[in-house]
Each structure stands twice: as structure tokens, then as C-alpha cells.
Amino acid sequence: MNFLNEYTIYSVGDHAVTIELSTTIDEETNEKVLCLFNHFMQQKPEEIKDIIPAYSSLTLVYDIIAVRKKYDISAHSAILQFIEKKLSSFTFCTASTNNCIVIPVCYDISLGIDLQEMAIAKNTDIPTLINLHLSKIYRVYMIGFLPGFAYLGKVDALLATPRKAEPRKKIDAGSVGIAGDQTGIYPVTSPGGWNIIGQTPIQLFNQQAPDNTLLKQGDLVRFEAIDIATFHQLKNKV
């Protein structure tokens, strides 16, 4: 357990606690979170309703009534004891598969609807922005916001762009966006505030088996540019 160095535990409501490993976004911490997530998911007791890993923390959501039926102390105390016990039997492992998943993206301005505005704001041109997006291998830091929405980091400093002040009412499924130094792909059509630079024709979220979703925390992702004809061809296959 010593690899955890230090961590803090705090409540996020009367029915959830967060174990926070650090207050930074870095691969090492994120790997520890993933490891911890796998550890807690093993023999997960029924009264733990959800275990949610994020950049640098893990949150346990529990059923107060179910915990109280099982233990004679407050549910909060029982969960803290459960966490202590779980942490004491924990050894570090490399959790990531280091799978590198290639995602085809069409950066045509008909799909990358914010590219023009971003290029003007950054005093550069669209091909430079596209090449920057293609130049790196990204890590899936966490899944959140929408079913199967992967937060990938980190993008080149020039490409980093704050969220739009006024979110759009509808962003198409497959849209690839930038928010701060993160890039992500909308798995389903939804409202959203990310700056859209392109679209992938492939399906990210598997409704019937969400655990078989294409991207998982710890995966590596590389983008590959495709033209609009290929985009439509692949899209029709899906």
C-alpha cells in the first residue's frame, strides 16, 4: 500500500465517498486509480452501487439502508472500514493494457465545425491544428459525462482551447472535440460545449454491452485522418 504515499478520503454526499490520490492530472496517478478500481471491483459487495474512477480519484456510491442492514455502525463508518480493509490487501500492478487504438477521423470543415474559428483565434491555419491533433498518442484518463465518453489527454498547448461559453444544443455522435488540454469523442448525439474539430464514423458505445465499449480507462489512442468520401463509406458500413 505504500505506493499510494498519501491519499485523502472525503464524502460526496451522505451516500458516497471519494478516495483522492492527488490533485494533479498525470499518467502515474491515473494508473494507480485504474489499479485501485480493478481491486475494488473484485468481489464488490452488493451494497456498493457504483465505483467511479476519475483522473486522480475513485468514488464509491453506496446504499445507506443496505449497509445499515449488514452492519451495526453508521453506514459511513462501515464504508470507511471497508475501504481501509480493501486498501490493506492492495498491491500495485500495471493495470493498463497499453492497447493502442487507432480511430479514423475526418477533419473536413463540414464536420470539424470549429476548426476555422480556432485557427483564427490561434493565428494559425487548419492543417497545422489537424497535424497537431494527429501528432500525439493520447491516454484515456477517464470515462464520464456521457455513456462511453473518453477524456483523452493531453493535447499540444497550441491546440488547447477552453470550452465554448455557450454550449451547443446538439452535437452529432462521433464528433471529436477539444476542451482545455483534453480531447474527446461524443459517443452519442447530445448537447455539449467542446470545440468540434472532426468526426469519426466508427461507433464507440455498445448499448447492449457497455463494458465492451471501444475505449477504456488506461487505453492509448491515436487518430488517423480520413477524407470525406472514406468517412461516408465507413459510416454507411456501421
Binding site: 471519494t18 476519475a54 483522473y55 486522480s56 480519484s57 468514488t59 456510491v61 464520464g144 477524456y151
Partner: peptide, 10 residues
């Protein structure tokens, strides 16, 4: 803050 889990009532 860095994003982390939120709950009903937050």
C-alpha cells in the same frame, strides 16, 4: 478542480 465523480444532491 480536476473532474471527479458527483452524486445526486451535489
Amino acid at each position: 478542480l480536476i473532474s471527479s465523480a458527483v452524486t445526486k444532491g451535489t
